[in-house]
């Protein structure tokens, strides 16, 4: 196992609101290996996007990274903890967009409609290098070619609103690659796109990763996209990583009751026509009504009374790279704080 390029350890990102504290990310840990694609999957409110924003240190107020470590390993072997950096500071600004590129879901709102895509690319290139304007423009055309935009020499002067959703997402990827990052974070990069466009963008991401040796964090709610793209998978539920392992293990030998039920409830093109789906009881709890103990226990068919509702399971290793946080597999737990205590302590 290669040394991880990025390690997230017991990350907690909370939102302090008048009604109480929303623990969007509450103790998530995972490693990203160089050249690998790590898929983070989960339903709304599981904290997958906030995790990405925490790594980039762009969590918006009233949210903040409460505790934990985000360790970025540099090629020279040094390690920097991004949590300790000032989110707006120079060093973090060089990491963000420099060492770590990012692509978000909304290609419409992530691009400026007042500047040509060429100028936006040139700005991004020159921010992280001392290239001349002329050289940066050539590099911009090169980047547009790289991401498969037809007629890049002309398109470099167009505005984002003149492009289709698929092309805009390609421009976003070109922007993310402008400073030759080693890590790319893609948060739901294809969710707003049609299925044939999605296929094109996924193929592009795969091609770029192979060519540039990128490490990718791919965040999505779509198990199909994960199955196709990821080497390793982290399954999140209510701010915690409930299970993680190689993609093959997660899909063919899942351990956590949530992972198993999630996989069974996905509709599939391979299913019998008009067949009912397996369901998970109940729905995702409201962020202010977080269950005590294991966050999944109220919806879990295998919950152990007196244990799962009392304490929080710690990760148990089932294989070298397969870990699950569930009492069904033994393992230790930390007693859960009575609901509300933390909020009062604040």
């Amino acid at each position: 196992m290669a040394e991880p390029i990025l390690s997230v350890r017991r990350l907690c990102t909370w939102f302090h609101q008048d009604e109480g504290i929303v623990r969007a990310v509450d103790g998530a840990s995972f490693d990203l290996e160089p050249g690998h694609t790590l898929g983070i999957v989960g339903e709304s409110g599981c904290g997958k996007s906030v995790t990405a924003r925490s790594i980039l240190r762009i969590v918006e107020r009233p949210g903040r990274v409460e505790s934990g470590e985000i360790l970025l390993r540099r090629p020279d072997g040094s390690v920097v903890d991004l949590v300790k950096l000032d989110g707006q500071g120079r060093e973090m600004r060089e990491v963000r967009g420099g060492e770590i590129g990012y692509v978000f879901q909304e290609p419409m709102s992530s691009l400026s409609s007042f500047h040509t895509i060429g100028n936006q690319l040139i700005e991004a290139i020159r921010l992280h290098s001392d290239m001349s304007k002329k050289a940066a423009r050539d590099r911009a055309v090169e980047l547009l070619t790289l991401v498969g935009i037809p007629r890049p020499a002309q398109r470099v002067d167009s505005y984002s609103f003149e492009l289709s959703g698929g092309l805009r997402q390609r421009v976003m990827i070109a922007l993310a690659l402008a400073a030759e990052p080693r890590i790319l974070i893609a948060d739901e990069p294809t969710t707003a796109l049609d299925v044939t466009t999605q296929a094109q963008i996924l193929d592009l991401l795969r091609k770029l990763q192979a060519e540039q040796g990128l490490a990718v964090i791919l965040i999505t709610h779509d198990m199909g996209v994960i199955a196709e793209m990821a080497d390793d998978v982290v399954v999140m539920y209510l701010g915690r990583d409930v299970e993680q392992g190689p993609v093959e293990t997660i899909f063919h030998d899942p351990a956590h009751p949530y992972t198993r039920s999630l996989l069974q409830s996905i509709p599939s093109v391979l299913a019998e026509p008009r067949s009912r789906l397996r369901t998970i009881e109940g729905s995702i709890p409201h962020p202010y009504a977080r269950p005590a103990g294991c966050p999944f226990h109220p919806r879990c068919a295998d919950a152990i009374a007196g244990r799962c509702d009392r304490s929080l399971p710690e990760p148990t290793h089932l294989g070298a790279r397969h870990a699950v946080s569930c009492f069904l597999y033994g393992g230790s737990g930390v007693p859960a704080l009575p609901a509300g205590l933390l909020e009062r302590a604040e």
Partner: peptide, 20 residues
């Protein structure tokens, strides 16, 4: 083009060229 939730089925896709 539909991603199938099974990593064993990563087969060649037929991606139509260009845009709608």
């Amino acid at each position: 083009a539909v991603p199938v939730p099974d990593p064993r089925r990563r087969t060649g896709r037929i991606v139509p060229l260009g845009e709608v």
